[in-house]
Design a protein around this nucleic acid. Structure first.
Length: 486
RNA sequence: GGCGGGUUGGCGGAGAGGUUACGCAGCGGAUUGCAAAUCCGUGAAGACCGGUUCGAUUCCGGUACCCGCCUCCA
């Protein structure tokens, strides 16, 4: 087996990845807040960590990887949307409208990420289905002295966890000195963060020992990763003795670099304090932390005010295929900022058309090229993997190219429709063109044959004339309605 | 202010202390009535200033500029 090496944010180094239990590799990715369509930036972690998921499945076996990606469906933006609908006269309770909104958004999300070739995770828990687990965890943190209740809020006592800031390389004192923290009367320390907050009648809420309220953002990931990556496999007997030596731990936790602080830092604090070692010292959590860098658009941050903000669905609706979006993502290493440009998309489409044309001549059962595999096992070097695919293309190695594209998520079963040549009968044009050409060869007057040729090219037909004869192929921009009359 | 990432040839984008990245575009050639497609060949680089070294784009230090986070946005 090839050694997989991954850049671990926790140690800031590339390390050899060895799972706690090769029979059950466990990873968690912070998923979307489901208040609206996923924008392009939301898609980057989904795609890059989908490649990781595929690689892990390849190396450890498809049935030996558990991938969890959550849906955050407790959020003020969701509440605001639901409230706006209610005020606009929508029927139903606020809770129903929220459920409606999040259901709808999850459906969009699935459709959009499917289009990008991302496999569905094994579990996609919704925060609202784990409120009980969160409340239990919060109560436990209070009992252990790591959290305190005040005025209907429950806060995590940051000073109670000595390693706070280790992931992101910050110290509590420095951050307070930097002074952009919210000072609230109910906080013991300005850096303390919310585990639970009260809800008024206009907001969704759940009963808790601290009154009706809702969870803070960070606790959901701590609770759900514990439930699905530790408790559940443990209860079902899916953990080896080796894995049981590392209670509450799992292998990989991934997300965007913007989540490094505070979100992931807070997750670590909660989980490590909730699950201490036998001697009472803080426990451990995820072993590998992977973060993808941010996405830009035409060299600038994507933002609504710059007018360069768009969703995955916007691009798909513009006719940019999901495979093309995926290819553009994979051209840049996940740890570097990535720039989305229209030109890249156009080039990616050209490349993929070439590759599919070769790859579809092979069957589906070949092993991916070792060069591609080696590139991916080296910290998911997808850019290098693509370069390796070019070698396969130039060598006309269709089976290896096809298998490699599959591993990259660019080929699932068959060539996508957009890259297939339209099935049209152009034989009448072939005859006409060959006929006119033969005449022109004698008369030396090529005006008629050139006119027909340009008309065909204008309709998106690729015209090939050689000594052997005339060949017509519908090309990328083929439009049957533009075909000339013969 | 604090923390982190980046700066590679016309463009995109990797690896490696000394040996061709790769793709697109360009140029030359084959092929074609002319093209297209394809194939072959080819020029071109590592922000700036120091240091380590026989040798650095690759390691170390500094400077400049860009970007992200610190404001529940991946």
């Amino acid at each position: 087996m090839t050694k997989i090496r991954l850049h671990n944010t926790k140690t800031r180094r590339k390390e050899v990845f060895e799972p706690l239990d090769p029979q059950n590799v466990r990873m968690y990715l912070c998923g979307p807040t489901v208040y609206d369509r996923a924008h392009l930036g939301n898609a980057r972690p989904v795609v890059v960590f989908d490649v990781l998921y595929r690689l892990l499945r390849k190396e450890f076996g498809a049935d030996h990887v558990t991938y969890v990606r959550n849906f955050t469906d407790v959020d003020d933006k969701i509440n605001a949307t639901a409230l706006a609908r209610k005020e606009a006269g929508a029927v139903g309770t606020l809770e129903e409208l929220i459920r409606e909104r999040t259901e709808e958004t999850i459906g969009w999300y699935h459709a959009d990420m499917d289009a990008l070739g991302a496999l569905r995770p094994n579990f996609e828990p919704r925060a609202t289905d784990y409120i009980g687990a969160m409340i239990a965890m919060i109560a436990d943190l209070i009992e252990k002295g790591h959290a305190y209740a005040k005025d209907g809020h429950v806060l995590f006592r940051v000073r109670s966890y000595q390693n706070y800031g280790a992931l992101s390389g910050r110290s509590v004192d420095d951050m307070i000195a930097g002074a952009r923290v919210e000072v609230a009367p109910f906080k013991e320390d300005p850096m303390d963060f919310v585990l639970w907050k009260p809800s008024d009648d206009e907001l969704p809420g759940w009963d808790s020992p601290w009154g009706r309220g809702r969870p803070g953002w960070h606790i959901e990931c701590s609770a759900m990763s514990e439930e699905l990556l530790w408790k559940k496999p443990l209860a079902e007997g899916h953990l080896s003795d080796e894995a049981k030596k590392f209670p509450h731990m799992f292998d990989i936790h991934a997300g965007g670099i913007d989540l490094q602080f505070p979100h992931h830092e807070n997750e670590i604090a909660q989980s490590c304090c909730a699950h201490p070692h036998a001697d009472g010292t803080p426990g451990e959590f995820a072993r590998f932390w992977l973060h993808n860098e941010m996405l830009q658009v035409e060299g600038k941050k994507m933002s609504k005010s710059l007018g360069n903000f768009f969703t995955v669905r916007d691009l798909l609706d513009q006719g940019i295929p999901g495979e093309v979006i995926r290819f553009v993502f994979l051209q840049t290493h996940y740890g570097k900022p990535m720039d989305w440009t229209a030109e890249k998309a156009a080039q990616a489409e050209t490349t993929l058309r070439k590759w599919y044309k070769l790859a579809e001549t092979a069957l589906d059962n070949e092993e991916p090229y070792v060069g591609v595999l080696n590139a991916l096992t080296d910290d998911l070097n997808t850019a290098a993997a693509i370069a390796e695919c070019w070698q396969l293309y130039h060598a006309s190695d269709a089976p290896s190219l096809r298998a490699s594209m599959s591993l990259l998520g660019l080929m699932s079963g068959s060539t996508p429709g957009w890259a297939s040549l339209p099935d049209v009968d152009l034989s009448a044009y072939v005859v006409a063109l060959a006929d006119q050409r033969a005449k022109a060869m004698e008369t030396k007057d090529f005006s008629a044959v050139d006119a027909l040729k340009s008309a065909l090219m204008a309709a998106g037909v690729e015209v090939r004339m050689s000594k052997a004869g005339v060949e017509l192929l519908p090309g990328a921009g083929f439009d049957a309605s533009k075909l000339p009359d013969v």
